[in-house]
């Protein structure tokens, strides 16, 4: 066998090994994150886990200490930019751990899904990410998980 063929076979074997390793290790949830705007999310018909981008509607945040959860509503456009409120998406976040920059008008990404059954219009978020308003140059921290 020529040296070129040997190298090619070796490279292919390694690539196959890496692909197999990646495939088997990363098959589950949590490896890939996929963003949709609120409008796109509404238009999509497939149910299941999603990450939805929007803005916290004014005056909708309720921190419920009793049940250790936060309720709020998300709208498509930023409230301060004169955007109409339109149809909002009610969100239930079963934790009090909201990011620093989470407040009325904040740009957020909520991760979770619509819960089929009793309260089908409510988005049950497992994670909430917030971004700072565009007034500042630097993007604020996304509460990353490691």
């Amino acid at each position: 066998m020529s040296k070129g063929v040997q190298i090619a076979i070796g490279a292919l074997a390694i690539a196959a090994l890496v692909a197999w390793y990646g495939w088997t290790s990363l098959g589950g949830e949590g490896s890939y994150r996929y963003f949709q705007t609120l409008d796109e999310f509404r238009a999509a018909t497939v149910a299941g886990p999603a990450r939805v981008h929007g803005y916290v509607a004014d005056g909708t945040i309720v921190r419920d200490l009793e049940s250790q959860s936060v309720r709020f509503e998300v709208q498509q456009d930023p409230p301060h930019a004169g955007g109409t409120r339109g149809q909002t998406l009610p969100v239930h976040f079963a934790s009090l751990e909201t990011p620093d920059l989470f407040k009325h008008g904040a740009e957020v990404v909520v991760e979770g899904k619509l819960q089929p059954g009793t309260d089908s219009a409510v988005f049950h978020a497992t994670k909430v990410f917030a971004k700072c308003p565009s007034k500042f140059e630097a993007e604020a921290t996304e509460q990353a998980s490691f």
Binding site: G22, S25, L26, G30, Y32, Y34, F35
Partner: peptide
Amino acid sequence: GVKTTVGPRFFNTM
């Protein structure tokens, strides 16, 4: 046309 990111899990695993 959609932004899909890979999380820390991808990097750690690989």
